[in-house]
């Protein structure tokens, strides 16, 4: 188990290194001149050149990347924002809690309800409730997240006035965006749980458990569900990455000061260090969630931990 863990953590660092390199490269080749953006169109060419020199934009690509990595590793420094002139790390840390709360609550909603609905519709296959869950799950998977956000604002804020349409300070403000963000993943998890349960439920060891005289509830929970969980964990891990992406849209729609909104604004302003920092932070989150997923695998499936 510990060997497995060390290997997985090793993968985590490799992944982050590769992601940061790719993102750095993309930003390097993106057209647009930060110096002009900072100084404005009316600035002289000399002033812009001096600014580029000061920002280190004239050095070759690899040197720039090396400097970025060096600052990050040695000083935990992600650079300075071109626009606000504040450290990027500080800017990110100010907004990241909102994004994490949003994604975390959404994934909890998705897992709890998705798994529960999946189990119910598998156990009651072809029943009315199974049909209802299936239809809603298909709708949930098909439509984009931002659309739910907009619809919910229209219904619950504008028409009914139950929840505020923006902000992220009180639970009532958090409710709508978290729900909108969770729906798609919930549907995905419900579908996956259902099909995975149905596959396991036909296996011999389930009959064996029944033949032991075990109660049906325990047959489902301790024999079927534990085995069905393995593919469901994969989906949950993958969904978290999707959720972070969806959070980006919802932060804009619900005016939540989060990482997504910060990044979208920074992209508009060509504020490369903030964009770079934001992407770096998100990839860190996704890889950590994947690490947790891998650990969960090992806990659920004894074959993985032993090999």
């Amino acid at each position: 188990m510990s060997k497995y863990l060390v290997k997985r953590i090793g993968y985590l660092f490799v992944t982050i290194a590769i992601v940061s390199f790719i993102v750095f490269m993309m930003l390097f080749f993106t057209p647009g001149d930060p110096a002009t953006l900072i100084l404005g169109n009316m600035s002289t060419e000399e002033a812009r050149e001096a600014m580029r020199e000061q920002l280190g934009l004239n050095s070759p690509f690899l040197v720039q990347y090396f400097n970025f990595v060096k600052d990050l590793v040695l000083h935990q420094d992600l650079g300075t924002s071109y626009i606000t002139q504040r450290p990027v790390l500080q800017e990110i840390l100010e907004v990241v809690p909102n994004t994490l709360i949003l994604s975390f609550v959404a994934i909890v909603i998705a897992v709890v309800f998705g798994v529960a609905l999946g189990i119910i519709s598998a156990v009651r296959q072809y029943s009315l409730i199974d049909a209802i869950v299936t239809v809603f799950a298909m709708i949930g998977i098909s439509a984009p997240i931002f659309w739910y956000g907009l619809l919910m604002i229209l219904l619950f804020s504008v028409q009914l006035g139950w929840f505020p349409p923006s902000g992220f300070d009180t639970p009532s403000q958090m409710f709508l965006p978290c729900l909108a963000l969770g729906i798609q993943s919930m549907s995905m998890i419900a579908r996956m749980t259902r099909s995975s349960m149905l596959e396991i439920i036909r296996m011999d060891f389930v009959k064996m458990a029944r033949a032991k005289g075990q109660k049906e509830v325990w047959v489902i929970l301790s024999h079927v569900f534990r085995n069905a969980l393995i593919p469901v964990i994969t989906v949950i891990g993958l969904q978290f990455g999707m959720l972070l992406c969806g959070a980006l849209f919802l932060e804009v729609i619900f005016s939540i000061p989060g990482l997504g909104r910060l990044m979208i604004e920074s992209i508009k302003m060509r504020d490369y260090p903030v964009v770079m920092g934001g992407v770096f932070f998100m990839s860190l989150c996704v890889t950590i969630v994947n690490l947790i997923t891998d650990i969960c695998y090992a806990l659920v499936d004894p074959k993985i931990a032993k090999s």
Partner: peptide, 21 residues
């Protein structure tokens, strides 16, 4: 009665044990 008085041995031992227990 299941298990206590009448018990069953299934055809395929590869699948009649729960792999995660």
């Amino acid at each position: 009665i299941q298990g206590k008085d009448i018990s069953m041995i299934f055809q395929d031992p590869m699948t009649s044990l729960n792999p995660v227990m």
